[in-house]
Write a protein that binds this DNA or RNA. Structure first.
Lengths: 212, 212
DNA sequence: GCGTGTGAACCTCTTCACAGCG
DNA sequence: CGCTGTGAAGAGGTTCACACGC
């Protein structure tokens, strides 16, 4: 594949297209136009065509895109044809909640293990998965060379979890902690910040009132 | 306050500054420079000054920003001086997980209730909060005119929950469902999409390998 | 001297509109 | 004729660099 540098926004949209195409496939649709894809994802059809044309010419003029082919191509671009296993650090309410609710129907991801450092929790069950000791992390990450780790530890323990993961060779991390974590440049970190989302919502809700 | 139209990106950054300032306050710091704020949030100092200067002149040349004053001003801008109550729809593993883990230390938000439509769950406990019937939603939303609702229902039930909230007059919603939900224009919706974050991480992890 | 606030340059992403192919 | 792919225009956000106030 050609090395194209592309914005994160575009990647995020590709993820949405993929999700949308999977649903279309289930509904038994074979063809989708940029228009349909666009209205499903809440953006303009021009944006859809632009995103896709960066990587190749996947469509047919006059008809649209073949659902199956486009999905394959997008998964190729994203690298999600066979998604990496996901591990969870922290068997508290969020960690277990994520584990139990699972990731089915989201593109093939699966939680493959959950870890905690609290001896009381080690060995207990989250759904049908047994909680392992964080001391086992190095083994797992090295065995499966590619792993995504989700940090769902209690406030304050984020950096410790992160350091452990980095030491074990983990290169991709999704953190639910609010602390900004220090990491080497070659490790990718993303954050799920519920409180920031709430701030954005509060702002737009109250701003709307003022403007009324 | 003057009606300034401003990007969501900027609002999101203001939320980060606020968080950072709260921590500084706890550490007992009185003054912060744009430089310090910037490195804490992982952006440039110019961006910080730009964001803040949109709303006023909060700093003092030569010294920086007074932590307490700036925090007050930002909370004023965001409308988060006294944050609205947050309710959760769906007492499954994610909903209960969120409820139990709470929102302390994130800017004053608090979960004020959790709802489910499953009669088996109604009356049971999530942490120390009793699960209510979704039929009670209209009352609560109307009583407290401003509420943020978090949708954490099982896949497929998202739109139903949304319709109920909209009918009850709720204007701000944070959804953990993957389905794109239909809403009136005056209702603000934001999504937490774990699987999209995983896609972005997978992409950057595997792309890095290819480029190496 | 130090750090803010800001015009101006820069850059990136989005939208428009249309040529060209099926 | 319909819909894709894309040059060109436009909008929006970011960075630079410096004047000004403390």
């Amino acid at each position: 594949m050609i090395a194209v540098k592309v914005s994160e926004k575009s990647i995020r949209r590709l993820s949405h297209y993929a999700r949308c195409l999977r649903l279309a496939k289930i509904r038994g649709e074979f063809i989708m136009t940029s228009q349909q894809l666009a209205s499903n994802c809440g953006i303009s059809s021009a944006a859809v065509r632009r995103d896709l044309s960066i990587y190749g010419e996947f469509g047919k003029q006059g008809s649209g895109y073949k659902v199956d082919d486009l999905l394959t191509n997008i998964q190729n671009i994203l690298g999600t044809t066979d998604p990496p296993p996901v591990i969870i650090i922290g068997a508290g309410s969020i960690g277990c909640g994520l584990m139990i609710s699972g990731l089915t129907g989201t593109g093939g991801y699966e939680y493959s293990a959950i870890y905690d450092k609290d001896p009381e929790k080690i060995g207990s069950l989250c759904g049908d998965m047994q909680v392992r000791s964080t001391e086992e992390i190095p083994e797992l990450v090295k065995k499966k060379t590619e792993v995504i780790a989700v940090i769902a530890v209690t406030s304050g323990a984020g950096q410790e979890a992160m350091d452990m993961l980095v030491a074990a060779g983990c290169k991709a991390i999704l953190s639910f902690t609010l602390e900004p974590l220090k990491v080497p440049d070659d490790v990718e970190v993303r954050y799920v910040e519920v409180s920031t989302e709430l701030d954005v919502l509060t702002h737009s809700m109250r701003r709307k009132e003022v403007l009324k």
